[in-house]
C-alpha cells in the first residue's frame, strides 16, 4: 500500500463516477455518479493525509469538508429533483431543455 496505489484506486473511482454522471439519464443516477466522484476524492485526500502530510489534522479536516459537501449535494439535489418533478413531471435530464431556448 503506497500513496501511488491509493491514488490510482481513487482515479479509478473518479473515472467510473465521471462515466456515470455523464451517461445516466435519470437525475438520481446522475447524482450517484457525483457521489462516486466524491468517494474517489475522499480516498485521495485520505491517502495524501496518511502518506504525505505526516498526520497533519488539517488533512482530516478536508475529508470532513468533503463529507459535508456530499451531504449538501444530496439534500440540494433531491430538493431540486422534487421541485422539477412537481413542475414538469420529469425525472430524466432530456426533459429539461429550457436553457436551450
Amino acid at each position: 500500500m503506497t500513496l501511488a496505489s491509493v491514488l490510482i484506486v481513487a482515479a479509478g473511482l473518479i473515472g467510473i463516477g465521471l462515466y456515470g454522471a455523464l451517461s445516466q439519464q435519470s437525475f438520481v443516477m446522475l447524482m450517484m455518479g457525483l457521489e462516486l466522484i466524491m468517494n474517489g476524492a475522499l480516498l485521495a485526500v485520505l491517502g495524501f493525509w496518511s502518506f504525505a502530510l505526516g498526520g497533519m489534522p488539517e488533512g482530516q479536516l478536508l475529508a470532513i469538508v468533503i463529507m459535508a459537501v456530499m451531504a449538501v449535494e444530496m439534500a440540494a439535489g433531491f430538493a431540486l429533483v422534487v421541485a422539477v418533478y412537481r413542475n414538469r413531471q420529469a425525472d430524466v435530464i432530456e426533459s429539461l431543455t429550457t436553457l436551450k431556448q
Binding site: G12, I16, G20, M32
Partner: peptide, 9 residues
Amino acid sequence: ALYAGWRVF
C-alpha cells in the same frame, strides 16, 4: 470499491 462502483451503473 472499484467493482462496486462499476456495478452501480
